[in-house]
Nucleic acid binder design. Structure first.
Lengths: 218, 218
DNA sequence: GTCTATAGTGAGATAGAC
DNA sequence: GTCTATCTCACTATAGAC
């Protein structure tokens, strides 16, 4: 579309992208009900009405932000999930990819966690944008379950419950990077997103999962 | 106070307790911003103004509900955390106690998860009720870190990062019971809180943790 | 595509009778 | 301790000029 993109020039951020950036950060921190359209507009440097020009409703904005985050995560970890190699090798790569995807932006994990455990900003009807979120989520979870299943079938993993183990892997991976101030306190106030902290988390989580699942750990 | 309590008669639930029950359920599902004082009052069978007679503000109600939940959890798992025996035995007991405490009410885990990762319903000032929540939380987390530390010091556990492992244990334990519809979908629509599902979760999580941490798994 | 102005609704919170 | 009535304010969303 924009010819400048092909020449490697820095793409000027559209208002739409700016709005989504702000919305992603605010919704991640305060949840759907805790964010007003006015504050999003202010931080994006627009009038409140301009916001409704780009997104027809607050619901649409929320789900669009969640969808963008989920697709970034999926792009990061699906290659590892579907990769070649044994289940052990795929588990290794997937754990590392999960950590890297969740550590990319501080807003990613909180927003993912919210989309996993509150799925209903409005109690009644789910708009079409919400269904698109579900599609990406179901695909990811299915592949994660498949990995656990394959490891059991090949005898590489212990004979665990596939859905229980899936829940455990998700909770262990996502919570850490969603834990905000609480997590930082645990690490003496240090950021969870520094290169050093991320590298340590990557190693710790991978070894934790491997020891927990692999039948004959070395 | 009430002399009837000493005779074992069923204690009539006070309006205050009724309000807290309703608030706990609603805040767990929808978060601070997603709940209105009117709906709480309606479901508790009171007028909105009566609610403000019992709790001076929405913030106070929220933190009081969170505090009550946290204290119930602490009462359930602190005996296991502080119990006698080796680190392995304490980890076993603690994992089981965590599952039982989180499975007691469907609202417990979501509300705990929220208190862990959003700690700030209002961005600016933290009311005194919020600090009481922090005290309980810090005590619990400290004991959990202590357990991991003891296991490493005694050589029972691998040489893991204590804060990272603490985060992993919390995430793995709490997320499952907070995952609501998402989790039920994973288990083919079955409730996460049936006796059978809880028993399986207890076994799976305990074995997962033991294999992940114990130096020479059997 | 952005703005000003405003409609219309519901929120949290208070006053004061009973 | 509960109620009715009300205040004030912020919210989502829309209309229409530029």
């Amino acid at each position: 579309m924009a010819p400048d993109r092909a020449r490697g020039l820095p793409a000027p951020p559209s208002s739409r992208d700016k709005i989504l950036d702000v919305a992603e950060a605010r919704f991640a921190r305060a949840g759907f009900g805790g964010v007003g359209m006015r504050e999003v507009a202010d931080e994006a440097g627009l009038g409140k009405s301009s916001l409704f020009h780009h997104f027809p409703s607050k619901d649409a904005l929320y789900f669009e932000a969640v969808k963008r985050t989920l697709e970034r995560i999926a792009a990061g970890i699906e290659p590892a999930l579907r990769g070649p190699g044994s289940a052990i090798e795929r588990l290794r790569a997937t754990s590392d990819a999960m950590v890297d995807a969740l550590a990319e932006h501080p807003t990613t994990a909180p927003l993912l966690l919210r989309s996993l455990f509150e799925m209903y900003p409005l109690a009644d009807d789910v708009p079409p944008e919400g269904q698109a979120v579900d599609v990406v989520l179901q695909r990811l979870i299915g592949q994660l379950q498949g990995l656990v299943h394959d490891g059991i079938a090949s005898g590489e993993f212990r004979d665990v419950s596939v859905p229980d183990t899936t829940q455990t892997l998700i909770g262990a991976a996502v919570f850490h990077f969603a834990s905000g101030e609480f997590g930082e306190d645990l690490f003496g106030g240090a950021s969870l997103f520094s290169a050093k902290a991320v590298a340590r988390r990557r190693d710790e989580l991978r070894e934790f999962f491997l020891h927990a699942l692999v039948r004959h750990p070395i």
